[in-house]
Design a binder for these strands. Sequence first.
DNA 1: TCTTCTTACGCTCGGCGTAAGTATC
DNA 2: GATACTTACGCCGAGCGTAAGAAGA
Lengths: 288, 288
Amino acid sequence: VDPHLLRTFVTVVRRGSFSQAAAELGYTQSAVSQHIAALENDLGAPLVRRRPVGPTRIGARLLDHARPLLLRLDAARADIARMTAAPTARLVVGLSPLALTTDVAAMLAPFDLTIRVLGRDVIPAGVATGTFEVGFVDGVAAPTDPLNLTEIGPLKTVAVAEQPVVVVLPPDHPLSGRAGLRLGDLADAHWIDAPDAGIPLAQLRTTSGTDGFRPSLTYHGSDVLGLITLARSGHGMALLPRSVAEGVPISEPPLVHRVEQVGEMPHTGSTTFNDSCNAESHGRTRPN
Amino acid sequence: VDPHLLRTFVTVVRRGSFSQAAAELGYTQSAVSQHIAALENDLGAPLVRRRPVGPTRIGARLLDHARPLLLRLDAARADIARMTAAPTARLVVGLSPLALTTDVAAMLAPFDLTIRVLGRDVIPAGVATGTFEVGFVDGVAAPTDPLNLTEIGPLKTVAVAEQPVVVVLPPDHPLSGRAGLRLGDLADAHWIDAPDAGIPLAQLRTTSGTDGFRPSLTYHGSDVLGLITLARSGHGMALLPRSVAEGVPISEPPLVHRVEQVGEMPHTGSTTFNDSCNAESHGRTRPN
DNA sequence: TCTTCTTACGCTCGGCGTAAGTATC
DNA sequence: GATACTTACGCCGAGCGTAAGAAGA
């Protein structure tokens, strides 16, 4: 199973066309055709339906393997490239929108920075493939539980900040001010899902293990103030880290908003140095 | 980064010799030398020290990537091969030693079986690479928490059995008979680590998040009765699923011994059929 | 000196492009 | 008939083996 063939296969499926995939990869259509034929021949099963071009059932399964495989392959290249190349003066940091808390900002203070804000899901991949040197991902979890990040290679992950999560409510809501409420009771309430501006409800479902928290409104956008306005106006409840929801009516469930650092910071004199690097080398580090 | 080169690299490091690796892989020494040279050239860094042959710092890091990569590559091949080939009459099952509880035995009753008992760590890999069709892994976890299995590809994992964990004690031990005791209090007690016959203490450390549970005696072997004898004689405490520790003085901490099924059982009329297969296709399924 | 890795060199075959073929809309 | 994938064929280069070279024990 040659990675080149896999990459071609993935590209063909993504673009839905042999010729477009060829153009993207710098091959001729013929070569792409031969790649697919070689793969199908090697695996002994048809992988793509033609006209219209799309994956077969088996092809779809292969995709599930191929995409993480190619990612890890790139990650391996990038990782050793990083060990070889001299560290750059400028630190490139990838952040999910709500990961830029004051704690994180403080950590980054001593560096010359280039900051890129991206979706939560692509931050670990970006660190693995060397798009940036360190990443910060935010998310919601039960206290002391780690975030559930997609694993790509031996990446060190450390929790760097935790703060309570709050539910933003309309001003006159009966729950206003209550702390420690059981989230399960709110599974069937009206929720706003704001994956970019707030905390995705999908994470809540995972964390709570329930099947509720279905959004009655979905908010696409990264504007937190807009989200708060919606929630205060009674369109539904919104989930936010406490620090960004100051001065609005809230309720506090027993959950934390947590930021985890993916990858390692370069060593500078002014930075805290964690000397447990060698013990249990690539494991996940939990605080406390 | 050609997988062939990676496989050669891994083999060279494992065997500690170019020529032995060549023999194992069916190449000439020359070819192996060229493979390593090609890799080092491609990645722009020395990967193996020669004479004696061993990985450099960068090579060691590459190993961390290469081994799982090759595993996933094999897993991909095996997975689609499984979808292509007709299901065999005989069901090949891989089990970790303590995974063969009565529940599991009941599940397997309707099949013609071939059973292979192996270490916990290689069961998921074996399922992924098609060595056996389904696997059963046991381990310890907090109630309702899933086991922490190494992920190799899109494998469905389902908890199939849970039972309390007990601490085996000497007959006159003060803790005898107590239930619900906090495990943290026992972190510094005398423990027997029996990775094959019992529950590895390493899992306890992971589950409890503490750093204790250091073994004062390590027991290599799969003989549970021997382990119980040691514990009763006061060599240290031993951790076992309750059903195998009948009639001995015990104490019950709030943990469960859990068996998880890796991979899917073939569909037979007599087997419970889970029709949620297509929803959220390759996720991890938690009970309740 | 013997073992073991490296380098040189030639051959073979895999794989890409060009171009002709074929099927689908 | 136009578009898009497949097949045929020739060329080039990657990669393996043989064999000679170099370096360490």
